[in-house]
Design a protein around this nucleic acid. Structure first.
Lengths: 242, 242
DNA sequence: CGACACTTTGAAGACGATCAACGCCGGTGG
DNA sequence: CCACCGGCGTTGATCGTCTTCAAAGTGTCG
């Protein structure tokens, strides 16, 4: 909400407070109600956003009516920054609020100007985009090579790390429908998969999840782990489970 | 081969020839034999490359021995630029020469310094990465929502546009095994799929492909097309087929 | 000519999507 | 206060698609 939350965002790393304060005057705070749409896929690109609080879902809709959730973004993440430098001048996804959300809105020119004038900011943006390419590549690898149980187990472990949950007992932060869409599977498949994970030490009852054992799902390993030390998720989950 | 080929690369767009010449003195030309590996997944990141001629395959290998081809790169494309700004200090894929290839090799520091000192270059890099995120998102969408025939038809149309082939008759630029790996499917599935495409106006015999009709595969539409005007591939293929 | 990688084809099986039905809960309106 | 509705989640049965295993055919390069 305050400048503090913004300062912790990776794209502002290493930028002096005075400079940051000067940059942020261009931003307008907006409240988005649950279910409302921030921008629509194909719409001309006009604004760039920082999420202050809440959750935003990025969706791509295919001609056949198939909807796929590309990302679920929380406070501290940015929206539209990856599209703004691209040649195509329209949003590549639809951004919809999963819950009541507050965002900071900037005109596109702000981002372009800032990147042009502030080298640190441009380098932060480069690092952020680079990381996003990495995650997208891993996403492709997951979709192509992992089974539904593997995808779900990987997802559960990841949210533990991201949200700093205790793996031995936590609640799902999103609806099961949303998670299924994020993992590119039908909600029926997701539901059935949760049952099968019991055998592997992951118990789910309602929204409550308990991960008791990761060793028994050793073969359910995400693409990050294909190289030792590459995977922050499994390093952290390993520590947490002791 | 010459500076001319390099000048046409998108990341050097708008950079003066004198400046470009100055930049390129840091580069060393290397020849890579067919099958040789430029760098390996997980290896510490030391160099960045420009492909002058030939073809490079980026591969990710999963623990189960499953290999997935992330990208097939040709002359004029760059290698390792998306990894270089990322927090992880190692290559995210293995780069292998599909055929005899010549590359221009730079130390990582060169790219970082250049991005820091030359704003135009940094912005080009941003645009390039942004575009790559876009392509990766579409890749995920394809994998999640399209059937094998759709993926193959989409791929065939795309290489027509990229390589400026005549859709009514051209040869596959890569082996069928490589294409199958690029599309995330088994070579058996790819082979079978080619037969089924005959019904939709696409004939494949050996390496030779003929696309006679796109209207009959109207429902085989790639994710680019979910929004009118978004898809360069199908706009171009439409023009070429008249 | 022979080794070897690439390609094709067949048959079986696994997996996820789809269609359908039902239970559950929160909200709305009579 | 209760009845109704709609969104969500679960479960069952079926179907189509892709993978897997197996074998044979094709091509190329030494």
């Amino acid at each position: 909400m305050t400048i503090d939350a913004v300062r912790r965002m990776p794209i502002f790393a290493g930028i002096a407070d005075t400079e940051l304060a000067r940059l942020l005057v261009g931003g307008v705070t907006r409240s988005i109600a649950r279910g409302d749409v921030v921008f629509t896929h194909g719409e001309p690109l006009k604004r760039f956003y920082l999420i202050l609080s809440g959750t935003i879902q990025l969706v791509r809709t295919t001609p056949n009516g198939n909807a796929l959730t590309i990302a679920i973004l929380n406070g501290g993440e940015s929206l539209g920054d990856d599209e703004i430098m691209d040649a195509c001048r329209s949003y590549r996804t639809t951004a919809k609020a999963v819950e009541n959300t507050t965002i900071l809105e900037f005109p596109v020119s702000w981002l372009k100007e800032t990147a042009k004038l502030n080298t640190d900011f441009a380098l932060n943006l480069l690092a952020s985009l680079s990381n996003r390419v990495h995650l997208a590549e891993i996403e492709v690898e997951h979709q192509a090579t992992m089974s539904a149980p593997q995808l779900v187990a990987c997802f559960l472990q990841r949210i533990c790390v991201i949200h700093d949950f205790d793996p031995k007992g936590f609640d799902l932060p999103y609806s099961k429908t949303l998670i299924a869409s994020r993992l590119g599977m039908e909600s029926e498949t997701f539901s059935r998969t949760l049952s099968t994970l019991k055998v592997h030490g992951i118990t789910v009852k309602g929204k409550h999840v308990a991960i008791n054992d990761v060793s028994s799902i050793a073969d359910y390993v995400c693409g990050y782990c294909s190289i030792a030390g590459e995977c922050p998720t499994h390093q952290s989950i390993g520590k947490k489970l002791g």
